[in-house]
Design a protein around this nucleic acid. Structure first.
Length: 291
DNA sequence: ATGTCCCACCGCGTGGGA
C-alpha cells in the first residue's frame, strides 16, 4: 500500500456503537484502527462483524469500563503487550501494543483522572509516569512507532474552545500537561498539531450543553510518531462527520496517513533536485542575461 | 450544581463513570 491510514477512536461502548463503527470502517477504510472504551468484556467483542469488513483484531476487554482494541485491514496483528508495563497490580484494560507489517502501534486509554484532586487523579499521574518510562524505550527505536489513543489531556489552552469552565478539570491540570510535555520532549511528534499549527481543532465534544452543535470541543485524542516514523507523516485530521451522526460517540475518529513502503520522500527529493538544476542551467542563465 | 450518555445490576429505575 502506498499510504497507511491509522486512526484512533474512543468509541464509548462498542456494543452501543457497533453499527456506527462498521459504517465508518466501510466509508473511510482505515488500514489500522485503535479503539478505546469498549466497555465490554472479551466475549462481547463483535469479532465476526469486524472480520466481515476485512479486519483482523486484537482486544483487551473489561466489564463495564475501559477496554482497548486494534484492528488491521487485511494484515496480521502481532501482540507485544496486553498491559502497560510497570505495575502488575493495575487491573484496568487501558493499553495494547502490537506490531502490524513492521509498524509498532501502542493503543492507549489514559485515565481521565476526575475528580481532582483525589485517588483517581493520582492514578492518572502514576499511569502517565509509567507511560513516559515505557515510551522512552520506543521513541528511539529504529522501527516506526506510533502512540495513539485518548490521552485525556488538553495540551494547552489553545486546544479547547474555552478553558474557563474547565480549570479544575483533570484534563487541564498543570501536572497532566507537564506529563504530556515531558513525553513529547522525548522526541515524539504530535501529528495533528504539526499538520494544523494555529488551528482550533478538536477530537471530543461532550454530550452536555449542546457542545457539538456549538463546536465547543477539546483536543484530547493524540497520534504521536517516533523519530523513525515522523518523516513519513503525510496528513492528519478528524473524521468530524462521525460525531454528527445520531447516536454518536462523544469522540470523533482522529487519524494520520503515513507514506510507508514506497519511499515517496526520496522521489520527491530527486524531483526537487532536478527542478533546481533546471532553473540554474546555463541555457536559462544565458536567456536571462539577454533580457 | 448542572447538563447527557453508556453501563451494570437488577428487575425497567437507579447509581457510577466520563
Amino acid at each position: 500500500m502506498p499510504t497507511v491510514k491509522l486512526a484512533t477512536y474512543n468509541i464509548n461502548g462498542i456494543r452501543a456503537r457497533q453499527a456506527r463503527l462498521l459504517e465508518w470502517l466501510e466509508r473511510e477504510a482505515p488500514d489500522i484502527v485503535c479503539l478505546q472504551e469498549l466497555k465490554a468484556n472479551d466475549a462481547a467483542f463483535p469479532l465476526n462483524e469486524i472480520r466481515a469488513k476485512g479486519y483482523s483484531a486484537r482486544w483487551v476487554g473489561q466489564v463495564s469500563w475501559n477496554g482497548v482494541a486494534v484492528l488491521a485491514r487485511g494484515a496480521e496483528i502481532k501482540e507485544r503487550h496486553r498491559a502497560l508495563p510497570g505495575d502488575a497490580s493495575d487491573s484496568h484494560s487501558r493499553y495494547l501494543e502490537v506490531e502490524v507489517n513492521g509498524l509498532i502501534v501502542a493503543c492507549l486509554y489514559l485515565p481521565n483522572g476526575n475528580p481532582q484532586p483525589g485517588p483517581k487523579f493520582d492514578y492518572k499521574l502514576a499511569w502517565f509516569e509509567r507511560l513516559i518510562k515505557h515510551a522512552k524505550s520506543l521513541v528511539a527505536s529504529k522501527q516506526p512507532v506510533i502512540l495513539a489513543g485518548d490521552f485525556n489531556v488538553v495540551p494547552t489552552d489553545f486546544d479547547i474552545y474555552d478553558p474557563t469552565h474547565w480549570r479544575k478539570d483533570a484534563l487541564l491540570q498543570p501536572e497532566s500537561r507537564e506529563c504530556y510535555e515531558r513525553l513529547l520532549k522525548q522526541g515524539w511528534l504530535d501529528s495533528l498539531r504539526h499538520k494544523h499549527p494555529g488551528e482550533k481543532i478538536f477530537t471530543f465534544w461532550d454530550y452536555f450543553r449542546n457542545h457539538w452543535k456549538r463546536n465547543a470541543g477539546l483536543r484530547i485524542d493524540h497520534l504521536l510518531l517516533n523519530k523513525t516514523l515522523a518523516p513519513h507523516l503525510h496528513d492528519s485530521n478528524v473524521d468530524r462527520w462521525v460525531r454528527d451522526q445520531e447516536g454518536a460517540s462523544d469522540h470523533a475518529p482522529t487519524w494520520v496517513t503515513l507514506s510507508i513502503g514506497d519511499k515517496p520522500k526520496r522521489k520527491a527529493a530527486k524531483k526537487a533536485v532536478k527542478k533546481t538544476a533546471a532553473k540554474k542551467s546555463p541555457a536559462k542563465k544565458a536567456a536571462r542575461a539577454k533580457r
